[in-house]
Design a protein around this nucleic acid. Sequence first.
DNA 1: ATCCCGAGGG
DNA 2: CCCTCTGGAT
Length: 224
Amino acid sequence: MKPEARAEFFRILRDANPEPKSELDYATPYELLVAVVLSAQATDKSVNLATRKLYPVANTPSALVALGEEALREAIKTIGLFRTKAKNVIALSRMLLEEHGGEVPRTREALEKLPGVGRKTANVVLNVAFGEPTMAVDTHIFRVANRTGLAPGKDPLAVELKLLKVVPEEFRLHAHHWLILHGRYTCLARSPRCGQCPVYGPCGFKDKAKFAAPAAPKRSRLPK
DNA sequence: ATCCCGAGGG
DNA sequence: CCCTCTGGAT
């Protein structure tokens, strides 16, 4: 995608949604961190359903450690990968208490040392909780960046670096949310809704016309 | 490359 | 039935 098309792409998404927010429910950096860890390979809705009940009971490192891994596992049982996530959230909370005064660290290095926190999760926390213009490349952004030609790359890290290079400065802070929301509601994984896509113009998807066309008229085998 | 892993949609 | 959902650790 050419520079002018990229700018047009983001102008359109920005004008439709000037102040995009995360769809994960959270009130503090810690609540956000835990929600993002829980969100791996799960929908925001399923995570919110669990945290809505969990956070009133325990929403700090000390409270979750006190709650214990077994109880936490039960609380998040409706989310996928719940055994691994429960273990990681407890271990991560202990580490916050022991090494960070119970606070969520603000550096990528410290965040990535936490169990269950990799590059993508660290980027989300840095962007959403601390206002840094990072590019957290998740399943949606990886797909959108490649399909549209906005920032093609063979793996998430390549796409992240490409995005940091080509997204105009004025769009960097919110690019993460514009792209993820576009992927979630319009540029769907299996059947993208090109027919009602706001960035159909600048998009470079080869088969966009195919997905934009109304359902192919059924060929009657008994014409007339 | 594989495992973990429930819920919702098609 | 199959695919997808704000991945990370081994």
